[in-house]
Design a protein around this nucleic acid. Structure first.
Lengths: 241, 241
DNA sequence: CGATGTATTGACTCTGTTCAAGATATGTGG
DNA sequence: CCACATATCTTGAACAGAGTCAATACATCG
């Protein structure tokens, strides 16, 4: 665990660079500031399957994912589940919280986190306005993702959902055609608003159509990316004539 | 149009109070500041059916709704539509934007707005850190709503969706049992990820079950609120035995 | 009052779910 | 290393909830 760039200072520096790249924001965060930031944070390692944010618990902490992959989900009273997102390095968790968390965050792989108390974050944002701008930028990004996901859940067919999901993953992994799925079929189904059976069937359909290759349960290779993109967007009518 | 509390100063003051109520934030916004704020804003009145934010257009403006009701939606290439939200007085629009808007905002009723340029907002937030905190709070609220909506779209039945929608509206209108629906059935259907026919049928089912009364197309009276709440949450199994 | 757009109702279809059986992995102990 | 046990995933057949299509009813507006 030692030797990795996991402390708050390093992370915040990375955030600063990230912000700078996009909007020339946050570049004011300097080394001396970062040292002070580290005081308010704590490093954590979470094992696969473990939850570190629990739905309905008082929202008192804020996390930055520094490594690994996480799934976020909401449970209904009768056990139905909606996975609202999969996140990785660089994501902020706890933004979408008021009194209590409305979701659970669970590690898919070994996960490294920076933990801040909400009180600590208040202090930090008071000291570093740039940080608050960074948070706002992140919130905007998440809102956009949420809207895309609403379109998927409300208006796309099963096949379109699977195609969209794979495209998302590809882009998320830097565009390489071969992707790893650290989540189960159940997770994918709950993310896409489908059942595991439908997920299985649609993956197979994409394979039969020569768009993807299913190397094993967790590895998929995209063969025809443009074709997949078309299927993801729908275009129910045109494109064929 | 004159004489209404529509200018940026009045609005920001209201925001400040609103923030103060919830989190004792923003109370630092003072009158002299507000006067300066007003310089950066512009008041607008939009007629029903008119759009003031258009999907795919460059995101250069930011709006605060000071009156009326607005629907937000995303269009797919082939015309399928997902309404992502209905908003009213006090809402901020344009948070969920990076380069371009990912949604369209259209007036349902006559709508009053404060318009800010993104550049103007940058200047303002630089001057008033409290404003940025207010924006972050609003973004958090929207993220929570988005997650609830994802659960609805991904995991609820048609009947549950209608019940949830009516409950939302009731709470949104301060808990009075009689609500007005300024949107069409098509809007409701696109919000709930259903068709207009299903919306119609499910409303009728709720009426037949004695949970609501349909006074006319735009007015609904909730008769059995607890019953409606149960149907909104699902509880597919228990509760009966 | 008819004309047009919107909403409701009914009959039928279809996509995705459910239920059940079989296949594939993953893991454990002999 | 293999037999067995358990999880997860895949496949198939029957079913059902919501969609589609078409006819009818209801509003709103000139």
């Amino acid at each position: 665990m030692l030797g990795r760039p996991h402390d708050a200072a390093a992370l915040l520096r990375e955030c600063a660079q990230c912000g700078a790249r996009k909007q020339s924001v946050c570049s004011v965060v300097e080394d001396e500031d970062l040292a002070r930031l580290a005081v308010h944070s704590q490093h954590l390692v979470i094992q696969p399957g473990q939850a570190f944010i629990a739905q309905d618990e008082p929202a008192e902490e804020f996390f930055i994912v520094t490594g690994g992959q996480v799934k976020l989900f909401t449970l209904m009273a009768d056990g139905r589940r909606q996975v609202t997102g999969f996140v990785r390095q660089g994501s902020f968790l706890g933004l979408a919280a008021q009194e209590r968390y409305v979701f659970t965050a669970e590690a898919l792989t070994e996960v490294h986190l920076c933990r801040f108390t909400h009180v600590g974050m208040k202090l930090l944002t008071a000291q570093f306005p740039a940080l608050e701008q960074r948070l706002l930028l992140e919130a905007a990004r998440e809102l956009i993702l949420a809207q895309e996901h609403m379109v998927l859940l409300g208006r796309k067919t099963a096949l379109e959902r699977l195609a969209s999901f794979i495209m998302q993953r590809v882009e998320d992994c830097g565009g390489q055609p071969e992707i790893t799925l650290p989540m189960t079929r159940t997770d994918i189904a709950d993310y896409l608003g489908l059942t595991i059976e439908t997920v299985s069937r649609m993956l197979n359909m994409l394979r039969r159509d020569g768009l993807i290759e299913i190397k094993n349960i967790t590895r998929i290779r995209v063969i025809d990316r443009p074709g997949l993109a078309i299927r993801a967007a729908g275009e129910r009518s045109g494109a064929l004539m």
